[in-house]
Protein backbone atom coordinates (compact mmCIF):
# COMPACT_ATOMS: atom_id res chain seq x y z
CA UNK A 1 0.00 0.00 0.00
CA UNK A 2 2.76 2.38 1.02
CA UNK A 3 4.73 1.66 -2.12
CA UNK A 4 1.61 2.22 -4.19
CA UNK A 5 1.15 5.67 -2.67
CA UNK A 6 4.79 6.45 -3.35
CA UNK A 7 4.52 5.35 -6.95
CA UNK A 8 1.39 7.44 -7.44
CA UNK A 9 3.10 10.50 -6.00
CA UNK A 10 6.15 9.99 -8.20
CA UNK A 11 3.92 9.51 -11.22
CA UNK A 12 2.07 12.73 -10.47
CA UNK A 13 5.30 14.63 -10.02
CA UNK A 14 6.47 13.25 -13.34
CA UNK A 15 3.27 14.29 -15.08
CA UNK A 16 3.42 17.70 -13.45
CA UNK A 17 6.99 18.09 -14.62
CA UNK A 18 6.26 17.30 -18.23
CA UNK A 19 3.14 19.42 -18.18
CA UNK A 20 5.29 22.32 -17.02
CA UNK A 21 8.25 22.02 -19.28
CA UNK A 22 7.08 23.58 -22.53
CA UNK A 23 5.90 26.72 -20.81
CA UNK A 24 8.69 27.13 -18.34
CA UNK A 25 8.28 30.58 -16.87
CA UNK A 26 9.64 31.50 -13.53
CA UNK A 27 10.92 34.62 -11.89
CA UNK A 28 13.63 34.63 -9.28
CA UNK A 29 12.29 34.33 -5.73
CA UNK A 30 13.00 36.91 -3.04
CA UNK A 31 15.48 35.40 -0.59
CA UNK A 32 17.97 37.13 1.69
CA UNK A 33 21.46 35.70 1.18
CA UNK A 34 24.96 37.20 1.47
CA UNK A 35 27.51 38.84 -0.74
CA UNK A 36 30.96 37.28 -0.83
CA UNK A 37 32.17 39.61 1.95
CA UNK A 38 29.23 38.88 4.23
CA UNK A 39 26.75 41.66 3.51
CA UNK A 40 23.02 41.04 3.11
CA UNK A 41 21.85 40.59 -0.47
CA UNK A 42 18.32 40.00 -1.71
CA UNK A 43 18.08 37.71 -4.72
CA UNK A 44 15.63 40.10 -6.37
CA UNK A 45 18.66 42.29 -6.93
CA UNK A 46 20.13 39.80 -9.40
CA UNK A 47 19.94 42.09 -12.39
CA UNK A 48 21.64 42.76 -15.72
CA UNK A 49 19.84 45.65 -17.38
CA UNK A 50 17.85 43.59 -19.89
CA UNK A 51 20.71 41.28 -20.82
CA UNK A 52 20.96 37.54 -20.08
CA UNK A 53 22.06 36.21 -16.70
CA UNK A 54 23.49 32.88 -15.63
CA UNK A 55 22.97 31.80 -12.02
CA UNK A 56 25.08 28.80 -11.13
CA UNK A 57 25.10 26.92 -7.82
CA UNK A 58 28.45 25.55 -6.68
CA UNK A 59 30.49 24.74 -3.55
CA UNK A 60 34.13 24.44 -2.55
CA UNK A 61 33.68 20.69 -1.99
CA UNK A 62 32.23 20.11 -5.46
CA UNK A 63 34.93 19.35 -8.06
CA UNK A 64 32.74 19.42 -11.19
CA UNK A 65 31.29 22.76 -10.01
CA UNK A 66 34.72 24.31 -9.78
CA UNK A 67 35.57 22.98 -13.24
CA UNK A 68 32.39 24.53 -14.58
CA UNK A 69 33.26 27.88 -12.99
CA UNK A 70 36.78 27.68 -14.41
CA UNK A 71 35.31 27.05 -17.84
CA UNK A 72 32.94 30.02 -17.52
CA UNK A 73 35.72 32.22 -16.25
CA UNK A 74 37.99 31.39 -19.17
CA UNK A 75 35.32 32.50 -21.62
CA UNK A 76 33.75 35.26 -19.56
CA UNK A 77 35.44 38.23 -21.25
CA UNK A 78 34.50 37.03 -24.73
CA UNK A 79 30.98 36.15 -23.67
CA UNK A 80 30.47 39.55 -22.09
CA UNK A 81 31.78 41.37 -25.14
CA UNK A 82 29.44 39.45 -27.42
CA UNK A 83 26.24 39.17 -25.39
CA UNK A 84 26.64 41.24 -22.21
CA UNK A 85 25.84 38.13 -20.14
CA UNK A 86 26.44 38.37 -16.39
CA UNK A 87 27.27 35.34 -14.26
CA UNK A 88 26.32 34.89 -10.62
CA UNK A 89 28.10 31.99 -8.90
CA UNK A 90 26.14 31.06 -5.77
CA UNK A 91 28.19 29.11 -3.24
CA UNK A 92 26.16 26.80 -1.00
CA UNK A 93 29.09 26.19 1.36
CA UNK A 94 27.88 26.19 4.95
CA UNK A 95 29.43 28.04 7.93
CA UNK A 96 32.33 25.58 7.79
CA UNK A 97 33.77 27.34 4.78
CA UNK A 98 31.80 30.46 3.85
CA UNK A 99 34.78 32.60 4.94
CA UNK A 100 37.05 30.55 2.66
CA UNK A 101 35.08 31.37 -0.47
CA UNK A 102 36.45 34.91 -0.92
CA UNK A 103 40.17 34.03 -0.74
CA UNK A 104 39.51 30.97 -2.91
CA UNK A 105 37.76 33.02 -5.58
CA UNK A 106 40.56 35.62 -5.49
CA UNK A 107 43.14 32.85 -5.74
CA UNK A 108 41.31 31.51 -8.78
CA UNK A 109 41.02 34.98 -10.27
CA UNK A 110 37.35 34.42 -11.11
CA UNK A 111 35.64 37.48 -12.51
CA UNK A 112 31.99 36.59 -11.95
CA UNK A 113 29.76 37.83 -9.14
CA UNK A 114 29.93 35.43 -6.21
CA UNK A 115 27.15 35.11 -3.62
CA UNK A 116 26.90 33.02 -0.44
CA UNK A 117 23.89 30.88 0.45
CA UNK A 118 25.15 29.30 3.71
CA UNK A 119 21.90 27.66 4.79
CA UNK A 120 20.65 26.71 1.33
CA UNK A 121 17.67 29.12 1.42
CA UNK A 122 18.11 30.24 -2.19
CA UNK A 123 18.95 26.68 -3.25
CA UNK A 124 15.71 25.39 -1.74
CA UNK A 125 13.65 28.20 -3.25
CA UNK A 126 15.12 27.34 -6.68
CA UNK A 127 14.48 23.59 -6.21
CA UNK A 128 18.12 22.66 -6.64
CA UNK A 129 18.59 19.00 -5.66
CA UNK A 130 22.22 18.55 -6.61
CA UNK A 131 25.02 20.79 -7.81
CA UNK A 132 26.29 22.05 -10.18
CA UNK A 133 22.96 23.46 -11.30
CA UNK A 134 22.82 26.42 -13.68
CA UNK A 135 19.90 28.69 -14.59
CA UNK A 136 19.68 30.90 -17.66
CA UNK A 137 17.56 34.01 -17.20
CA UNK A 138 16.43 36.19 -20.09
CA UNK A 139 16.35 39.99 -20.23
CA UNK A 140 12.85 40.08 -18.74
CA UNK A 141 13.85 38.10 -15.67
CA UNK A 142 12.30 34.79 -16.78
CA UNK A 143 14.15 31.58 -16.14
CA UNK A 144 14.23 30.07 -19.62
CA UNK A 145 16.60 27.16 -19.21
CA UNK A 146 18.27 25.17 -16.46
CA UNK A 147 20.74 22.35 -16.37
CA UNK A 148 22.17 20.11 -13.68
CA UNK A 149 25.65 18.50 -13.64
CA UNK A 150 28.72 19.51 -15.65
CA UNK A 151 30.57 17.69 -18.39
CA UNK A 152 33.55 19.02 -20.36
CA UNK A 153 32.30 21.21 -23.16
CA UNK A 154 28.91 21.99 -21.62
CA UNK A 155 29.88 25.66 -21.56
CA UNK A 156 29.84 25.79 -25.39
CA UNK A 157 26.35 24.34 -25.49
CA UNK A 158 25.17 26.77 -22.84
CA UNK A 159 26.72 29.72 -24.58
CA UNK A 160 24.81 28.92 -27.78
CA UNK A 161 21.65 29.31 -25.71
CA UNK A 162 22.91 32.53 -24.12
CA UNK A 163 23.45 33.97 -27.61
CA UNK A 164 19.92 33.02 -28.65
CA UNK A 165 18.47 34.55 -25.52
CA UNK A 166 20.53 37.71 -26.01
CA UNK A 167 19.11 37.94 -29.54
CA UNK A 168 15.58 37.63 -28.15
CA UNK A 169 14.94 34.14 -29.55
CA UNK A 170 12.69 31.57 -27.91
CA UNK A 171 14.63 28.56 -26.61
CA UNK A 172 11.76 26.73 -24.91
CA UNK A 173 11.87 23.98 -27.54
CA UNK A 174 15.54 23.32 -26.95
Amino acid sequence: MKRLIVLIVILFLGVAMYAQEPSERKKLPSVNIKTIDGQTFNTQNIYNNGKPILVSFWALWCKPCKKEMDAYNENYEDWQDETGVKIYAVSIDDARSTAKVLPFVSGKDWEMEVLLDPNGDFKRAMNVNMIPHTFLIDGNGNIVYQHTSYYEGLEDELYELVKKVAAGKDISKH
Binding site: L13, M17, S23
Partner: peptide
Protein backbone atom coordinates in the same frame (compact mmCIF):
# COMPACT_ATOMS: atom_id res chain seq x y z
CA UNK B 1 -2.33 12.68 -0.73
CA UNK B 2 -5.69 13.79 -2.04
CA UNK B 3 -4.79 17.35 -1.08
CA UNK B 4 -1.50 17.04 -2.89
CA UNK B 5 -3.17 15.76 -6.04
CA UNK B 6 -5.78 18.46 -5.84
CA UNK B 7 -3.00 20.96 -5.37
CA UNK B 8 -1.25 19.79 -8.51
CA UNK B 9 -4.52 19.73 -10.38
CA UNK B 10 -5.50 23.24 -9.39
CA UNK B 11 -2.02 24.50 -9.94
CA UNK B 12 -1.79 22.89 -13.35
CA UNK B 13 -5.13 24.43 -14.34
CA UNK B 14 -4.03 27.73 -12.93
CA UNK B 15 -0.94 27.60 -15.06
CA UNK B 16 -2.97 27.38 -18.23
CA UNK B 17 -5.74 29.67 -17.15
CA UNK B 18 -5.73 33.26 -18.38
CA UNK B 19 -7.02 34.57 -15.09
CA UNK B 20 -4.31 33.48 -12.69
CA UNK B 21 -1.23 33.95 -14.79
CA UNK B 22 0.92 34.86 -11.88
CA UNK B 23 0.58 31.48 -10.18
CA UNK B 24 3.68 29.39 -10.29
CA UNK B 25 4.08 25.76 -9.38
CA UNK B 26 7.53 24.32 -9.04
CA UNK B 27 9.09 21.38 -7.40
CA UNK B 28 11.64 18.67 -7.46
CA UNK B 29 12.01 15.03 -6.65
Amino acid sequence: LATAILFIGIAARAQFSETIKRSEVHGSF
